[in-house]
Design a protein around this nucleic acid. Structure first.
Lengths: 195, 195
DNA sequence: ACCCTTATAGACTGACTGGTCAGGAAAGAG
DNA sequence: CTCTTTCCTGACCAGTCAGTCTATAAGGGT
């Protein structure tokens, strides 16, 4: 127990709330005022705990990556086959269109498109997150090739990148309001690469 | 020949410059000051000619769609086969990574991810642009199926959506700084859907 | 020459930006 | 109880935001 007045908020919870806001509005579209409102923190508490906006965003991105990637690993463990995991993951991405308040996409991919290569720190984080996504898919492909649900004719790594790209494309279509049936079709077509 | 003092600038040129800025920085990331600097216009000229920031953005999006889509149609006409056009288009998207000042992606797809469904007007424009992209790919697939360069086993429409999704995914990977060889591999794998 | 119309420059607005700071409040330690 | 340490409230900062307005400039029509 550290000396001094204790915090009146839970940093992880606040970070989660901030992450949600960045996730829906993007970095530039999110104001400090909005972050304070959504977290309930005072300005000084936020600055003392998380640093400035950019640094806070960095922590949110990290928080998001960790939560998302570990969720993926969990679902991979729970999936009956490698292919089942891949199919579930792609369809989850599409289901984003039914989210209340409109589709938010994936914070990592959103950040990639918002920042491009303009910010070295952010770029490094995005690259790391993409690698993590790819690693999960890679393992899923390996398992799928072992259990016979995925064709052995492609390298797991290449197939994994292909799947990450596919997810990004589907999310973009969803955010762009493409006709649902067409998005579904594109998803199914992407999955035939596993045959 | 309108009465009164003539303009000291060329609206289409100014629109092109503004489009470039929105393209690299996004809507929120672009300031009026930046737009004035890049166009050389005075505040009053910009407002009088293009309306407010949102309306200007709308015109830029339109301008971009028109220029991009007509360029695509042109390249389709010039392509020896339907497949050649598709391959060229996908590889052009990837070549964005060598752009000076970092990859900018596609203004339409960038806008889709930045806005989501938060702005009805923008959403409608993005949907229209996606449809236009899809239409070009659809015609390319039809031609490819006729000239034997693309498998007839898929509906042109579905294959077209798949290709738009693929482009979106590749652009996202490029902006995210994914390893070049992996992006290339994903691109090739996407193209095998034409077999 | 004159007027009429349109375009431009640039000052100005109030609201909001991200960020800082001083002073009060709340706990544990002695 | 007092002291120390930390946290929080809220005022404050300069700078920027998008947007408006007035005054002047520059052309054509008559």
């Amino acid at each position: 127990m550290p000396a001094g007045r204790p915090r009146q908020f839970d940093p992880p919870v606040a970070l989660g709330r901030a992450t949600d806001l960045f996730w829906s509005r993007g970095y530039e579209g999110t104001s400090l005022q909005g972050l304070l409102a959504v977290t309930g923190l005072s300005r000084s508490s936020l600055y003392q705990t998380f640093g400035d906006k950019h640094h806070l965003f960095s922590q949110c991105l990290e928080h998001y990556r960790e939560k998302t990637v570990s969720g993926m690993w969990q679902r991979l463990e729970d999936a009956p086959t490698g292919r089942a995991f891949v199919e579930l993951t792609m369809r989850r991405a599409i289901d984003d269109r039914h989210a209340a308040g409109g589709p938010r996409g994936c914070l990592v991919l959103n950040t990639a498109t918002e920042f491009g290569h303009r910010d070295p720190d952010v770029t490094r984080q995005v690259q790391a997150a993409l690698s993590a996504f790819r690693a999960v898919f890679e393992e899923a492909v390996r398992r799928g090739q072992a259990d016979g649900s995925i064709t052995p004719s492609q390298s797991p790594q290449q197939l994994a990148v292909y799947l990450v790209a596919g997810m990004g494309g589907l999310r973009t279509l969803v955010k762009g309001g493409e006709v649902e049936a067409l998005v579904d079709g594109a998803c199914e077509m992407l999955l035939t690469a596993l045959d």
